Amino acid sequence: MTQGSRWSAGRVVVVALLSLVVLLAGVAAFGWGQYRAFLDRPLDVPAAGLVLEVQRGDHLGRVVEYLETQGATRNDWRWRLLARLQPATIQAGEFMVPAGTRPLDLVQRLESGEVIQHRFTIVEGWRYRDLAKALLAEPRLAVDPALLAEDAVMATIGAEEAHPEGWFLPETYAWVAGDTAIDLLRRAHGAMRDALAAEWSDRDPDAPLDSAYELLILASIVEKETAVASERAEVAGVFARRLSARWRLETDPTVIYGLGDQFDGDIRYRDLRADTPYNTYTRYGLPPTPIALPGRKALAATARPAAGTAMFFVADGRGGHVFSDTLEEHNRAVRAYLDQTRDGG
């Protein structure tokens, strides 16, 4: 081969190489443009958003596979490139993917751990059995019902108390996917112990209570006797004075609690005479356990009852109560209430 021929062949190779470089650069530029467009394009999710549950150990590829089944995106090379260029440790949990979310937004959301928070409310005045029923009705908090039984739940949550009544603070609690009813009960129990300890340390020193548990018991009675916030301290005051005077408390909610499933919604005279450990018409002092879950306001009112001279109270037919100093005054208030109910007032 002549020198000219070699130069000619060399030029062909150079041209070919340059052409290949140009082609590859064009392909790369096109691919990069596609990738940039992919990053700017929102996922195809409904206007209301898409709930995405990430299990422990999932990686971005598995998440994208699920999104593809929902029609939100295509699981192709662009996601794999994003995973290489933006490596992320995604968190487990339940995430809301709102409309307008772009691929990089999704990765950042999964990495941040901004999971969906649900709410569960423990209602003031619920019995423990009401709480257990409500927890079992929430399938995402599901546990073996036997673990929530009254004779098992305190051991289940690792509590030292034997009886669950009264020991869970009425509040609204946030929970996330993966939490169980046991997790929520542990938090509510800890919250009640803290709230009770705070009120006990700040109690009226003249309150006729010998322990924080007695405060919890009496607060549960106050909780069941009135839903009127302004009356709680007055009701607590009546009970405190009756305890100090060694009178029976004579409060219907304790009788109802003692009747258990026998209570049909209507308390009768014979019920007031049927002796149980919770019948405060037949027994002196406090019942052996709380009768409900008292809220913070009932705890505070019981720890610091209102001063006064009233020893009796009865419903006024309008949601509140009439307070009386003497039995004679109380009997008049009772007759007025009965007349009002008979008249349909």
Rank of each mutant, 00 (worst) to 15 (best):
R62D: 10
V63D: 05
V64W: 07
Y66L: 13
Y66Q: 13
L67P: 02
E68P: 02
T69R: 12
Q70C: 12
D76N: 11
W77N: 02
R80T: 14
L82T: 02
A83V: 09
R84N: 11
L85E: 11
A88L: 13
Q91M: 13
A92C: 05
G93V: 06
E94K: 05
M96E: 14
P98W: 02
A99C: 09
G100N: 08
R102N: 06
P103F: 09
V107Y: 12
V107G: 09
R109P: 07
E111G: 13
E114Y: 12
I116P: 04
I116R: 09
H118F: 05
H118S: 05
V123Y: 02
G125S: 06
W126K: 00
Y128H: 04
Y128P: 02
K133W: 08
A137D: 11
E138L: 11
L141W: 01
A142L: 10
A142W: 09
L147E: 13
L148S: 06
E150L: 13
D151Q: 09
V153C: 03
V153M: 04
M154C: 06
A155K: 12
A159R: 00
A159F: 02
E160H: 03
E161V: 15
A162M: 10
E165H: 06
G166F: 00
W175V: 07
V176N: 12
A177E: 13
A177F: 10
A181N: 03
D183L: 02
L184T: 01
L185R: 00
R186H: 01
A188F: 02
A191G: 05
A191R: 05
M192S: 01
D194A: 15
W200G: 04
W200A: 04
W200Y: 05
D202A: 15
R203C: 05
P205E: 13
D206V: 14
A207L: 09
